[in-house]
Design a protein around this nucleic acid. Structure first.
Lengths: 375, 375
DNA sequence: GCACTTTGGCAACACTGTTGCGAAAGTGGC
DNA sequence: GCCACTTTCGCAACAGTGTTGCCAAAGTGC
């Protein structure tokens, strides 16, 4: 019987605090490249200055953190700047959508260093697809100036992110049951992680500091455990990913985020899923008749339901259909939210979010201090 | 500036592990009163047997844990049973609904030892209401055979559980802005915690081991971080509380759980909130025309949306309207969920769930190991 | 030049869980 | 009845946390 809840020991404590500091340094790197001082870190973590000194000394020995000159004095000895050694490790993220294969090489901070993409139809046999991914990843790895920690893959669900096995892939039944993670790991000789495209995109949004994306005036203060937001993905289907208190919520059976089949019109048109008035069916119909604003307003209704239920701090939109008219979607969705008294900021995700978030699947263990135990 | 994310030190480690063991012992007490052995605890936590011995020795010194005879041998020296010293501490939980004041005295395991209730209309002035609560709590405290740790209060929201201040109280505007927690704490000389009735009821459900509530055959295995469920409360209004991965999700601005104003009929009847087709309006209308089954089926639609979005393990129903016809609600809601391909177990909460969960607000800090930091 | 503040490392410390070991207390084979 | 074996569980020594006391370094302000 596996432990139902993990006890914590000294190594766990150590890695928890190390990850905490690394996460703060990464966030500082991404906001503006400003270095943090040891006293800064002590204040933000609640650790004593001496503890911070010890921990950062270890991290510097491992090459993960480096000194960055002296910061201006505040009336005494000037403090030494510390920053993430972003160039010390790399990761590769892959986005597989139905037609294109995109691979990005990111540094330790999660910033994209190089990008490659190629057409890849999932119509082709599995072996051919795997070979194409392998080749593309090898190409990205070759560009890395330092060691590559692993490879993350984001693609349409449903799939099991723990085992890396695909379930059914709508439209491409021959991919069902493929143990993608293990197949790629064997070919590449690198650790591989697989997750749904909505989840990886949400990870990319989570890693990017919110202040950089929308004016902080309209942004509510995030809750204690970190920020909460919903990522809504409108492409060939409609899905969502939920980040609650700084943690991606995947659900008990890894099925969370079925946003497309929310019923919003009890007597609405029949959806292929068998029910009536599903948000996805209504949205896709609006898109189909060339009415992105109408689709966006429907998305707004679903988003309002979601904000009411979960009290998230903001909504992030993404996916192919949104990318075709980002400002329309952003504006109309925000308008409906405001009308319904659920006014929260609405932004759009970066175009490469899915691939960049996939790379973060590999980097995340270095920075996650949320669960002291780890999985 | 307060620490944005808490570093962990040795005392935090210590209380984390102590809480972990206490939680396991509490769960064992509630399932069937069976005692656990030290090796059991070691296996379930991943701690070494020696660590368990040290920790339980401390807990026994504090009087929180006691030995309970010898367990049957498994081929060697028989192990000593350990169990929560349920009678060593007590807590009081109060449920304030619009008309009744219910107070329960619970032991350390959260089991109700005594119950008192009295009519109390929130129509009355605030001072009178506070006096009534104070008197009722004092009566409950007098019945406690041991020290009382504090008092929890569950009532209709919206309110701020961190400060214990009420916001608006629908129908009783003179209660708006009352600092209920501090007023009661000053009168009683005991720590007081306040939360929404839906949240406290969910805490009561969370504390009760799921196996005791519904046959484990239909119960999916809970996720890694603990079980996930939604508690739906239908009384004078419709609200919800969400427990995700074993943690109550309150939302960034403590506003999560606005389940009643989910739009499920875009062109539906106007709701007092200003929108159309809110689930609450439709449900209450069905109840109003004497159609509980219809209300339950509507609840089922909302629950299906919720299961799809959050992938929760089960649905729990509660509140005055449900309590009037629990089996109808349970059956019809479950039927709609099954029809929609979201078949998860549906149960009803215990009648005293709100008050018992309120008591758990006080007991929870002893058992919560989820966030190593605490709030 | 001097008093003061701030940084940050060294050393000793308190306390964690861990390891090695051994006594206690059962079961099962002979 | 005896012995080998297993399991429990505490004592003692240990490794490794973060913490405290202290002090040198390196600035600012008068």
């Amino acid at each position: 019987m596996r432990p139902s809840a993990s006890g914590a020991n000294l190594p766990a404590l150590r890695s928890h605090n190390a990850a905490l500091l690394l996460d703060l340094l990464r966030a500082a790197t991404l906001t503006g490249g400003t270095a943090l001082s040891r006293p800064d870190l002590a204040e933000r973590t609640g650790l004593t200055p001496q503890a911070v000194s010890k921990i950062t000394a270890r991290l510097r020995e491992e090459g993960l953190v480096e000194e960055a000159g002296r910061l201006p004095s505040t009336g005494g000895k000037p403090s030494t700047g510390l920053r993430l050694a972003a160039g010390s490790r790399y990761a590769v993220g892959v986005h597989l959508d139905g037609e294109t294969l995109t691979a990005v090489l990111t540094d330790l901070a999660g910033r994209t260093v190089a990008e490659r993409s190629a057409p890849l139809s999932l119509d082709r046999p599995v072996a051919e697809g795997l070979a194409a991914v392998t080749a593309q990843v090898r190409g990205a790895v070759a560009l890395a100036p330092g060691p590559v920690l692993g490879v993350g893959v984001g693609m349409r669900g449903p799939l099991d992110h723990r085992t890396g096995v695909l379930h059914r892939v709508t439209g491409f039944p021959h991919w069902a049951g493929v143990p993608l993670r293990d197949e790629l790991a064997a070919r590449l000789g690198l650790p591989v992680a697989v997750d749904k495209n909505t989840n990886t995109a949400a990870l990319a949004v989570l890693a990017a500091p919110p202040g950089a994306q929308y004016p902080s005036a309209g942004a509510p203060a995030p809750g204690p455990g970190g920020e909460s937001f919903a990522y809504l993905h409108l492409g060939t289907g409609l899905g969502a990913a939920l980040v609650l208190d700084g943690t991606l919520h995947r659900g008990g059976r890894t099925g969370a985020g079925e946003f497309g089949h929310q019923a919003v019109q009890l007597d609405g048109p029949l959806c292929p899923c068998g029910n009536r008035g599903c948000l996805e069916a209504l949205c896709l119909a609006a898109v189909g008749r060339g009415d992105p604003a109408g689709a966006a307003r429907l998305l707004g209704v679903g988003a309002a339901n979601l904000v009411a239920l979960l009290d998230v701090d903001r909504i992030v939109l993404g996916g192919g259909t949104v990318r075709a008219a980002p400002e329309v979607f952003r504006r109309e969705t925000a308008a409906v939210l405001a009308e319904r008294g659920r006014g929260v900021p609405v932004t759009t995700a970066a175009p490469l979010a899915v691939a960049e978030g996939a790379a973060l699947l590999v980097l995340a263990p270095l920075f996650t201090h949320g669960a002291l135990a780890g999985s």
